[in-house]
């Protein structure tokens, strides 16, 4: 049973990633294939604040959100002026640059060895080291992210980013500084992904660069695609489906050496089939 708890925690972390990426892709139309890099920035920032500076988990998390958010705004500012294809390719290259920096900036990130000994969250007497409590913490943070995303997308700000997605020129004509809106949503999405990163780092107790490659970005993209663009609840469904899929394969008795490849193939197939037959995802409202 505690394995279910473990999966549920992973579901929470990936649901946060899915929801935050949906803000970029689904609502604003920015095809960002570097969410794993943002995830990594959050995880590393959290890990470094918690180990090197010995900060409390929650303080480290706020700072990591800040770092991820600032970096997200910055890349948003640079890249989102570019057209769709360029933006997408720029994001892929950004993913590479981030992983390369994590591997090579050894004095800060400890290179390929990664950072181990990341503490579990605690608040005064209350420790979240125990899996149940950690999961509840993840659930609470997912709830906050979910509520924030709902609030953002239902606000007037949300209407503007949707207008940018539909027709950026028209939004400009109406006097909106569309670049600033894109920078803002990039920052917010990144800060939320930062939370997921810190949770992962603390949950596993270890981070290394190998977990954050482009394939991981494609995985997070698949969560959004399966769940549905511009549908926050959909991303929860997508995260649930894709976190459970490998377990189904595992328990279905695929040998481990094949299962990993089958998994990748199924993600790919899901992307193709959803784009062809159901671009709005399982419960999405918006046809991309």
């Amino acid at each position: 049973m505690s394995y279910l708890l473990h999966l549920a925690t992973f579901f929470g972390i990936y649901a946060i990633l899915g929801v935050s990426l949906n803000l970029l892709i689904g609502y604003t139309g920015l095809v960002w294939i570097a969410h794993a890099a943002t995830f990594a920035v959050g995880a590393y920032a959290g890990a470094l604040f918690a180990t090197k500076l010995a900060l409390n988990f929650f303080l480290a998390m706020l700072l990591a959100m800040l770092v991820a958010g600032i970096l997200g705004s910055l890349t948003g500012w640079i890249f989102s002026r570019l057209g769709g294809d360029y933006y997408m390719l720029a994001s892929v290259s950004w993913n590479y640059i981030v992983v390369s920096v994590l591997i090579n900036w050894e004095s800060l990130t400890n290179g390929p060895l990664g950072i181990s000994g990341i503490p579990k969250p605690s608040l005064g007497e209350l420790s979240f080291a125990e899996p149940t409590k950690f999961f509840l913490l993840t659930l609470v943070l997912l709830g906050i992210v979910y509520a924030a995303a709902r609030f953002i997308t239902n606000s007037s700000f949300g209407r503007v980013i949707k207008a940018i997605r539909e027709d950026e020129q028209a939004a400009k004509v109406f006097g909106y500084n569309t670049l600033m809106y894109k920078v803002a949503i990039s920052g917010m999405g990144a800060a939320m992904a930062g939370i997921a990163g810190v949770l992962l780092a603390s949950y596993i107790g270890f981070v290394d660069p190998s977990s954050f490659d482009v394939m991981e970005s494609i995985f997070i993209l698949a969560i959004v695609v399966v769940g549905g663009f511009a549908n926050i609840r959909g991303s929860l469904v997508g995260a649930l489906a894709l976190v459970l899929l490998p377990e189904l394969l595992r328990f279905a008795g695929f040998p481990a050496e094949i299962a990993a490849h089958v998994r990748l193939g199924l993600y790919g197939l899901a992307l193709i089939l959803f784009m062809l037959y159901r671009p709005q995802g399982i419960i999405g409202e918006y046809k991309f």
């Binding site: 505690s2 394995y3 473990h6 290394d208 977990s211």
Partner: peptide, 19 residues
């Protein structure tokens, strides 16, 4: 399969320990 990466191995270990 730990795939020589931290995340996969941690997932696998969790399954072995808990399930």
């Amino acid at each position: 399969d730990g795939k020589c990466t931290g995340k996969e191995a941690s997932n696998a270990a969790n399954k072995l320990i808990n399930a």
